[in-house]
Nucleic acid binder design. Sequence first.
DNA 1: ATTGCGGAAATACAGTGTATCGACATGAGA
DNA 2: TCTCATGTCGATACACTGTATTTCCGCAAT
Lengths: 232, 232
Amino acid sequence: MTMTVWDRPEPPTRPVPLDRERIVATAIALADEGGLEAVSLRKVAARLNAGPMRLYGYISTKQELFDLMMDEVQAEILPEEQPGDWREALSSLAHRTRRTALRHEWLADLLGGRPTLGPNGLAVTEATLAALDGLADIDTVMRAVETVSAYFTGAIRREIANLRAERATGLAKRDWQRASGPHVTRMLATGRFPALAKAVYDGTDVDAETSFATGLDWVLDAVAAKLTGPSV
Amino acid sequence: MTMTVWDRPEPPTRPVPLDRERIVATAIALADEGGLEAVSLRKVAARLNAGPMRLYGYISTKQELFDLMMDEVQAEILPEEQPGDWREALSSLAHRTRRTALRHEWLADLLGGRPTLGPNGLAVTEATLAALDGLADIDTVMRAVETVSAYFTGAIRREIANLRAERATGLAKRDWQRASGPHVTRMLATGRFPALAKAVYDGTDVDAETSFATGLDWVLDAVAAKLTGPSV
DNA sequence: ATTGCGGAAATACAGTGTATCGACATGAGA
DNA sequence: TCTCATGTCGATACACTGTATTTCCGCAAT
């Protein structure tokens, strides 16, 4: 005589199947919510209803998870359409990177941290190099790309650093001054930093985006001069 | 009748007096030896023959320790003599920052991470702004300084990132290719990255310093154009 | 029915930043 | 000189972290 359904226990729930995509997605979600430091293997695993050790089948170190996250968001940077000229290509690369970093602020902590060798990272580099191909010898082209990347990498990092600082010290319209509380004001009051004081008090409060764009234009001007310059 | 010296125990050794300077110095030493992640409050305290909690009299969070370390090495960046012209001032700032980062590689992880508001950081900014004072309206000057800083911040970060990558994968002459093992070579072999492949195979292997200097010169050229341009 | 086996989970470990507590040497007041 | 308050230091504690190891258990093949 067989047991009725009521006697038999439910079969144990099979663990949810996992893949890198899902792991990276939840890691990114966590980072978006609470910054990079909110990403822990335990929390990621918990969101996937898995034990922490489960992840080590797909990743062998936390750093690798960061690499995957980085490469994943690089997809948002890839331009969807062929750029017009090289200048538009580089400019678009810079602006797309910036906007992506504003969506995923943790990107600022990873930017330039280690070479991006994932598929999307390579694709971005490829697209960029392709846009400059033939305009000058390869070495000049690489120098151009590296210079522009160095600029917007640094600029984005600073922008987000300031953004966080402002957020931490409550709303702070001017970058410093009232921002970091009495300290900077006191320092400026000592008179030991006249040039800085002048800059803080007399400088116009320009918004981050145009500041970014202006610096970028300068750098692109420089690149333009080098690309067409020596050969003409 | 008083006890002889032999009967009396030695007085308990008073704890070594501490100050921020010593704390920061040992933290920097630790970071120089094993990178930023080798810096833990416990290890710092241990080197000073103190309990970990002792540090909280001088610091209220680990992040503050990093801020102090950052400001400390900014002293190495301050130029010892008045620069000739603005271009030399900015160039020197960039190169000194780079050399400092090569001495203290962990600096790359902190560069641009948060605004530098310590005394040395302010001094560096002051010196830089002072060198450009009067050459243009304040807003242009600030844009110039920010653009150049963004460039060398990003460039230094990438240089050190590559340096570490090479170090990690054994000696790697070319940046990528053999560097990250079979992976990149395989990717390039797929033919999906022609421009990149060309750059890797046909590009000249230029050393980091000249690459840095070249990009910097370009940016400085751009700044020069903007400083003298519109007003003339 | 038994036996491997493969993969998931539990446990374990060494370490982290930081809060809290207890002890104790030192200075003040009696 | 004795006592008591004080303030500082160290020990302990806690909630975590990344990762190594061990244990367990359902399933496939014998």
